[in-house]
């Protein structure tokens, strides 16, 4: 009724509720892994989901995975707040199958968006090895989940 009165377009297939129902929990889990503060994560999730839903273009993004785009969007927005360590208990529970090195590489890439070249220099390894460790960490987690 509210929307009809003020002539606001009715809910599109991908309106804010659609994004919320599908991605809010995943995004909150992801942001919580970055900011390591539940209240901050909730605030940031609300802000990021709202702005992403507003900027999201269905036509332009037809062939791209929405979660992939949303995660990258959140990563860019939170670039200044990243903590490149997997210390949150809920997160470590999901990452416990990884070795320390795999965990370090996965978290630096997944949560902090660190480049392969940066990690190669920081960890004193070559880029191929970093890529391989990243692939192994993803493979391990996929296997654990039965994918």
């Amino acid at each position: 009724m509210f929307n009809a009165v003020f002539n606001v377009p009715s809910a599109e297939p991908m309106d804010i509720r659609w994004f919320y129902n599908k991605y809010a929990a995943m995004l909150l889990g992801y942001i919580n892994g970055i900011v390591q503060d539940h209240q901050k994560a909730e605030d940031q999730m609300a802000f990021i989901l709202t702005s992403f839903a507003k900027e999201f273009n269905v036509q332009e993004s037809n062939n791209l995975n929405i979660w992939f785009q949303l995660r990258q969007y959140a990563q860019r927005k939170l670039a200044a707040q990243t903590i490149p360590m997997c210390i949150e208990p809920r997160q470590t529970k999901n990452l416990e199958v990884l070795s320390e090195l795999e965990k370090e590489i996965f978290c630096a890439v997944y949560y902090s968006g660190k480049s392969i070249a940066y990690l190669a220099v920081t960890l004193k390894k070559n880029e191929d090895e970093i890529r391989n460790q990243l692939r192994l960490s993803v493979d391990k987690m996929r296997r654990v989940r039965g994918n």
């Binding site: 509210f2 809010a24 929990a25 909730e42 989901l49 809920r90 997160q91 993803v138 994918n147």
Partner: peptide, 26 residues
């Protein structure tokens, strides 16, 4: 699979959060 992985790491948001977002969007 990465989406499924994120689902595995998901945290259910508090119940009143959507109302807050909806009000802000409106």
């Amino acid at each position: 699979d990465m989406e499924l992985l994120a689902q595995g790491m998901a945290i259910e948001p508090p119940s009143g959060l959507f109302k807050k977002i909806e009000d802000e969007v409106n």
